[in-house]
Amino acid sequence: MHTTPITAALLRGALDIEHTAHGLRPHRLPAWARAQCADDQLAMAEAQPSGVRLVFRTRATTIELDALRTSTAYVGAPPRPDGVYDLLVDGRPAGQAGATGGNVRVVDMTTGSVETRPGPVGTIRFAGLSEGPKDIEIWLPYNEATELVALRTDAAVEPAPDSGRKVWLHHGSSISHGSDAASPTSTWPARAASLGGVELINLGLGGSALLDPFTARTMRDTPADLISVKIGINIVNADLMRLRAFAPAVHGFLDTIREGHPATPLLVVSPLLCPIHEDTPGPSAPDFSNLAEGRLRFVAMGDPAERAAGKLTLNIIRDELSRLVTQRSADDPNLHYLDGRGLYGEQDFAELPLPDQLHPDAATHRRIGDRFAGLVFDGDGPFAASRQPAG
């Protein structure tokens, strides 16, 4: 077997690489940005490599990847699904595998305590691949931090050539991060990117789409041909700001992105339907009453009457985002708006309800990705001019 050093040349979708005692840990925020926020939720989310993949060309029929995963477990809750590695050969699904061993990050939601229990490096193996030269993509789990330790193949490896596709940079909340999608290539942004024929950089950060200036600066400095920002749900369920602060924060976020991308198509997406927060402010809180049956749900803790004092709801945020984009687009013809209920609305909720009241399931991720591709990459959608055939 050939052992190939894992370097930045073999990685796509990561914005930084940390050298660890075991190997390489991909990050989705650069080190300087991580240093500006000590929030544990953000640290966990950005280190989970949603949209990050190993990409190379080889004649190999067997591929082995050693990796040290860090999964998350919640005290008293049923086990979380293990992370999945998706294999694509020449752009087509060709296998899935998981890693054994690994560290476990144990979170007690009632006390906020976190304990990390160490474990061994595991191996992900794909065998029986077709002979001859082919382009390989191994998409890393969206829900586990991953340290890449070693890559072994039964033939030589070389970096894959540039695909020539446009780069789509997307920022959003846990739904964009992946939430409860079936695998890394079936999160809604990954599916939409595949259908749209673009290369994805996913800055969906679970619980952390909070209009942070360092995220805007990261997007400003990241080369991209298409940019979208999905704003709202984390602002509400974190009860982070009031209406007076929200509009200037959105303006500042977009201004910063425009400093680096003055004419790039930029799409602002408002929240998907989330009934608990349509007219009820946050914060969101976990409801532990059905935990023994393996069900965790979230509830809205705010009072609708608090809207008069400037507390935010999803409907208020949609109105503000629509107004702001209309205002700005008079001087920015490449700025666009999409109401998130066009991706997931009332009829969708009736058919495919949110299992925990906040996050979609795997079938809903597929629907959202299909809808986004149809509304944004097809027809007269804001990204349609950049579409290339998938596959």
Rank of each mutant, 00 (worst) to 15 (best):
E306C: 13
G204W: 00
V52Q: 06
A9S: 15
D331N: 14
F253N: 08
T58F: 00
G197K: 03
H2M: 10
K230T: 13
L314A: 14
K134T: 09
M301N: 08
D361E: 12
E144A: 01
V236H: 07
G119M: 05
P360A: 12
R307I: 12
S71R: 15
N237T: 07
H359K: 13
G379L: 12
H2F: 01
G369F: 08
G302N: 15
A156T: 15
A263P: 03
A285E: 14
V149T: 11
C274W: 00
V325N: 05
L169Q: 05
A35I: 13
D221W: 01
A155D: 12
A150N: 11
E259Y: 04
G164V: 03
E115G: 05
T364K: 09
L354W: 03
M1H: 10
A60L: 11
G232F: 00
K230D: 11
I63S: 02
T256Y: 02
I276F: 02
L129H: 10
L29E: 03
D348T: 15
A330S: 14
S183M: 02
G197Y: 05
G342E: 09
V121A: 05
E137P: 11
L267I: 11
L65F: 01
E144T: 03
H261A: 04
F377A: 08
A263L: 08
V104L: 12
L273H: 11
D180S: 15
H27K: 10
G197T: 05
P271R: 10
L321D: 09
P281N: 13
G391K: 02
D348S: 15
A292I: 01
Q36N: 11
A73N: 06
I317M: 04
R217E: 11
G207I: 12
H27L: 14
D162H: 10
P286K: 08
D16W: 13
A145N: 06
G282V: 05
N315E: 09
S322I: 04
G294A: 04
T280I: 10
T3V: 14
G164A: 06
P49M: 09
S228F: 02
Q388S: 14
L87C: 09
G340K: 11
T146R: 01
A285K: 11
F349A: 13
L24I: 14
G302M: 12
G112C: 08
R366F: 00
H171Q: 12
F214Q: 10
R12M: 05
S194M: 11
